[in-house]
Simulated assay, not measured.
Amino acid sequence: MPEAPVLALIAHDGKKADLISFAHKHADLLRQFQLVATGTTGQMLIDELDLDVVRYHSGPLGGDVQIASRIVEGNVYAVVFFIDPLGKHPHEPDIQTLLRACNVHNVPIATNESTARLIVERRAVQDSLPNRDSDDAS
């Protein structure tokens, strides 16, 4: 069985409740991924939903950059990053590094619930389709 794709979950402090709400609604779909997250967000996902999450440092301590490095290495399927557009973020350069890594390496990034839902549901639909490669081989 192939390894589950890696989904990174990140949320600014002002959006953590939104991400947890999203995770509650889509917990079954999220369990189909290998989840990675920044520190506080990851701990909340573990505590509230009992999800298996690899935690990196919190964003201000370098967690965004750690996830960006996984993107550059080609080890991330998609990123869900609930950004607080009205908040000030002292680690803004790290956030821009993460966004740039997604854009350079063509990794889908959702910055709100609507696009996050599309990413996790699309993967579920892909997994339910017959493997087209095996049909081509016959």
Rank of each mutant, 00 (worst) to 15 (best):
V65K: 10
V72Q: 00
T38P: 05
Q32F: 02
L19H: 01
S114L: 01
Y77L: 04
Y56Q: 05
L19C: 07
Q66W: 05
D47Q: 09
E121M: 13
D18Q: 12
V79T: 14
C102F: 07
H57M: 10
T41D: 07
L29R: 10
G87M: 08
G74K: 11
L49K: 04
N112T: 02
G59M: 14
A101F: 07
S58E: 04
Y77I: 02
P60W: 03
D18V: 07
I109R: 06
V54F: 15
N112S: 12
N112Q: 11
L49F: 08
V72H: 01
F22S: 05
H91D: 05
E48K: 14
V79F: 05
A37R: 07
I109N: 01
D18W: 11
E121Q: 15
V79I: 15
A124R: 15
D47Y: 03
I71P: 04
L61S: 14
G59K: 09
G39Y: 06
E48I: 00
Q96H: 10
L98I: 10
N75R: 13
E73K: 15
E113Q: 14
R70C: 05
D50E: 11
H26S: 10
M44D: 03
P93D: 00
I109S: 02
F22H: 10
I20M: 01
L118Q: 14
L49D: 04
E73P: 05
E48N: 08
